[in-house]
Amino acid sequence: MLRSRTRYGRWWVYLVLTVALVLVITPFVWMVLGSFKTEGEIQRVPPTWWPETATLDNYTQLFARLNFATYFTNSVVVAVAVTAGNLLFCSMLGYALAMLEFPGKRALLLVVLGTLMIPGVVTFVPLFVIVANAGLIDSLPGLILPFLVTPFGVFLMRQFISGLPPDLLDAGRVDGAGELGIFGRIILPLCGPALATLGILTFLSSWNNFLWPLVVAQTESHYTLPVALALYSTGQNNTQYGLLLAGACVVVLPLLVVFLLFQRHFVEGIATTGIK
């Protein structure tokens, strides 16, 4: 009975899911198609689906006239630096919290867990004050430093490393390896899946981060892509819609490619870390 029912139900489930999928994906298709349209075509009523005269004008203008190359570089530099920092520091601290004994370990773990639960809004103003006092406002380090270690990453790595057999440590010690050696040669190579998840998640959130760079990057040369796009789209001279759509493509598409390449790790990572 169970079996016949599911077989009976199948075709309409596929239908509903496909309609839903089309609804979910359409905005992206619309965005990409729109970015190749001329200005006149974008504003036409009723709108066209395929661009009548496909043009790369929007993209050439974006990079030639609007400095999107600079914003793009900034975004890449910040995202890569933040990701590298998280991979290194979070795994080190996660290792210490999972495997080593040192005074204040419990307290440190509680601090990590506590900050994990505090939403970004709360730390926003004091963080700004700190960064301002350090003279890092309107600089790339100001965009990078606050995110080099995240409590989420520390927790993720700690949970993962806790699951590794502790005998490994003793084996390493017997072989005469120092703590650095144990960490670098034994622990890190085993952390592949966790590092992949952490790396992708960090890269994504850094690339899409908006509020912090919006406040800290005050001159154009330090804008990241989302900041530039948002300010350009809410600015007074935002008559060129084609440019906006092309800009949105430049923000979204590189990530989409990264995501499609690594999606296996990613989706599984979300599910496992989400449940933890």
Partner: peptide, 12 residues
């Protein structure tokens, strides 16, 4: 995807 980019697209 970036909320900013998505918001721009949805505005259209």
């Amino acid at each position: 995807t970036s909320i900013v980019a998505v918001a721009v697209v949805w505005r259209f």
